[in-house]
């Protein structure tokens, strides 16, 4: 199989180039990541991130044939050849398929991704009813792979100011949490042309989320919550 990969080495290259590899997948190779690992043994200068190889750590997000996805969850079966691999769009490239996630995580931290509750500590735990817990489904599963934010045109144009789908999904995860008491502050922080309202409901985020989550839906709920808040 032919794989065409975006190569950039900051020490030797002034600009990125594409490099073609021919590789024969072996019997056990099921996912794109298996082929990448095989390529790595052929050419150890090839750089990419990976860890869990099962869609949990979120480190091998890349642009695969024009769409963002996780190499470890992308089946080799039926893949269009040559397989073209590039780094996540719009993110600064550190080397080959490795991008700088600094800004992405800064946005994540900006929405205070932790429970805020200033009420007196209960004896044992803050109890949630099954219905309340249910509300966190489809939100807490995010692995912060950045497939969504790196496929969002609004994020491409304003990566420094728009929080982006991943950060907003997490913002909504804490807004929805019955144990969190900072809902009003969280909403007030988001009421901004840049932070939240750059989203134009293109839904590219939801299209590519490898965990099947829907950041666009979370954003829709945040906007409605803001309308309710102000009326």
């Amino acid at each position: 199989m032919r794989v065409s990969i975006y190569r950039f080495n900051p020490e030797t290259d002034t600009k990125p180039r594409m490099q073609d590899y021919d590789v024969a997948p072996e019997a056990g190779d099921k996912k794109l990541l298996d082929v990448l690992m095989r390529l790595k043994t052929m050419d150890d200068s090839l750089s990419f991130r990976r860890s869990c190889r099962e869609g949990v750590c979120g480190s091998d997000a890349m642009n695969i044939n024009g769409r963002n996805g996780l190499a470890c969850l992308t089946s080799l079966q039926g893949m269009k050849e040559p397989v073209v691999l590039r780094p996540l769009p719009g993110f600064p490239v550190i080397r080959d398929l490795i991008v700088d996630m600094t800004q992405f995580f800064a946005h994540y931290h900006s929405i205070k991704p932790y429970l805020i509750n200033n009420e007196a500590l209960p004896e044992r735990e803050r109890v949630q009813s099954p219905a309340e817990r249910e509300k966190l489904n489809g939100l807490y599963e995010c692995i912060l792979c950045a497939c969504c934010s790196a496929f969002c045109p609004s994020f491409w144009w304003n990566p420094d100011k728009f929080i982006g789908p991943a950060g907003l999904l997490q913002a909504y995860r804490f807004i929805s949490d019955s144990r969190d008491t900072a809902t009003a502050e969280r909403l007030a922080y988001l009421d901004d042309v840049y932070r939240l309202y750059r989203c134009r409901t293109i839904m590219n985020c939801t299209e590519v989320c490898p965990k099947g989550l829907s950041p666009s839906h979370a954003i829709e709920r945040i906007r409605l919550a803001l309308v309710r808040e102000s009326s």
Partner: peptide
């Protein structure tokens, strides 16, 4: 300031496959 200031970015729109919604 990221260590990658001045780093290249991949953002060639003709090489990205846009979903129908986009």
């Amino acid at each position: 300031r990221a260590r990658s200031a001045g780093a290249p970015k991949f953002l060639n729109l003709s090489q990205i496959r846009f979903p129908i919604g986009a």
